[in-house]
Simulated scan of single mutants.
Amino acid sequence: MSDRRFRATTAFQRHIANPLTRLLPFQTLLETTGRVSGEPRRTPLGGRRVGDSFWLVSEFGTKSQYVRNIQADPRVRVRIGGRWHHGTAHLLPDDDPAARLRTLPRGNSAAVKALGTRLLTIRVDLDD
């Protein structure tokens, strides 16, 4: 069941949700570098800035393409409130992602919790 859920969710996100939400000027975006193409890859997501860090939870952990890109190159950019910030992403497998979701925006957290099968906390240390 979880593999089917992963395929259905990622197909919906890739072909419908992400292309539409990327166009919204204040949608939070994570920009990674494609590990094969070397091209910028922008993923709409939810999370929260706390001080000089941006926190998020990936619903599919290391199966997510943007997480695999982070593993290859942790230098990222995050668009928060319409402004881009450079940073370095850190995968935190020892963090409690369910507890972390309770500190993040409710709407996105509910979707991640409902659809996710391999929750993984990610912290981006912002340079600026």
Score class of each variant (00 low, 15 high):
residue 2 S to Y: 13
residue 2 S to N: 15
residue 4 R to C: 10
residue 4 R to N: 14
residue 5 R to I: 11
residue 6 F to D: 00
residue 8 A to E: 10
residue 11 A to C: 05
residue 11 A to T: 12
residue 12 F to G: 04
residue 12 F to E: 08
residue 14 R to C: 00
residue 14 R to Y: 04
residue 15 H to Y: 15
residue 16 I to F: 14
residue 17 A to V: 14
residue 17 A to H: 12
residue 19 P to T: 01
residue 19 P to K: 02
residue 22 R to I: 02
residue 23 L to K: 15
residue 23 L to V: 03
residue 23 L to N: 11
residue 25 P to I: 00
residue 26 F to H: 10
residue 26 F to D: 11
residue 27 Q to N: 10
residue 27 Q to L: 00
residue 27 Q to S: 09
residue 28 T to Y: 04
residue 29 L to K: 06
residue 29 L to I: 00
residue 32 T to D: 06
residue 32 T to E: 01
residue 32 T to C: 03
residue 32 T to V: 08
residue 35 R to V: 05
residue 35 R to P: 00
residue 36 V to W: 06
residue 36 V to Q: 11
residue 37 S to V: 05
residue 37 S to Q: 07
residue 38 G to H: 08
residue 38 G to R: 07
residue 39 E to L: 15
residue 40 P to N: 06
residue 40 P to T: 06
residue 40 P to Y: 08
residue 40 P to M: 08
residue 41 R to G: 01
residue 41 R to T: 06
residue 41 R to N: 05
residue 42 R to G: 05
residue 43 T to N: 03
residue 44 P to L: 04
residue 47 G to R: 04
residue 47 G to H: 05
residue 48 R to K: 11
residue 48 R to C: 01
residue 50 V to G: 12
residue 51 G to I: 13
residue 51 G to M: 10
residue 51 G to P: 06
residue 51 G to Y: 12
residue 53 S to W: 13
residue 53 S to R: 15
residue 54 F to P: 03
residue 55 W to M: 14
residue 56 L to A: 11
residue 56 L to T: 12
residue 56 L to M: 14
residue 58 S to D: 06
residue 59 E to Q: 15
residue 59 E to K: 14
residue 60 F to I: 01
residue 61 G to W: 06
residue 63 K to P: 02
residue 64 S to E: 13
residue 65 Q to L: 11
residue 66 Y to D: 07
residue 67 V to C: 08
residue 68 R to L: 08
residue 69 N to Y: 01
residue 70 I to W: 03
residue 70 I to C: 01
residue 71 Q to G: 09
residue 72 A to D: 03
residue 73 D to Y: 01
residue 73 D to H: 03
residue 74 P to I: 09
residue 75 R to E: 11
residue 75 R to H: 12
residue 76 V to G: 02
residue 76 V to M: 01
residue 78 V to N: 04
residue 79 R to D: 08
residue 79 R to M: 12
residue 80 I to Y: 09
residue 81 G to Y: 00
residue 82 G to F: 12
residue 83 R to V: 03
residue 84 W to R: 09
residue 84 W to E: 09
residue 85 H to Q: 08
residue 85 H to P: 05
residue 86 H to N: 14
residue 87 G to M: 07
residue 89 A to P: 03
residue 89 A to L: 01
residue 90 H to E: 15
residue 90 H to A: 14
residue 91 L to N: 02
residue 96 D to T: 08
residue 96 D to G: 05
residue 97 P to M: 08
residue 97 P to A: 07
residue 97 P to V: 07
residue 100 R to F: 07
residue 101 L to V: 01
residue 101 L to G: 03
residue 101 L to E: 04
residue 102 R to F: 00
residue 103 T to M: 06
residue 103 T to E: 13
residue 104 L to R: 01
residue 104 L to P: 02
residue 104 L to N: 02
residue 105 P to Y: 05
residue 105 P to V: 08
residue 106 R to Q: 08
residue 107 G to M: 12
residue 107 G to L: 14
residue 107 G to T: 12
residue 108 N to P: 12
residue 109 S to D: 04
residue 110 A to R: 15
residue 111 A to D: 14
residue 111 A to F: 15
residue 111 A to G: 09
residue 112 V to S: 05
residue 113 K to E: 11
residue 113 K to L: 11
residue 113 K to Q: 11
residue 114 A to K: 04
residue 118 R to A: 14
residue 120 L to N: 07
residue 122 I to H: 04
residue 122 I to E: 01
residue 123 R to P: 07
residue 123 R to G: 10
residue 123 R to V: 07
residue 124 V to W: 08
residue 124 V to Q: 02
residue 125 D to M: 13
residue 125 D to P: 07
residue 126 L to C: 08
residue 127 D to S: 11
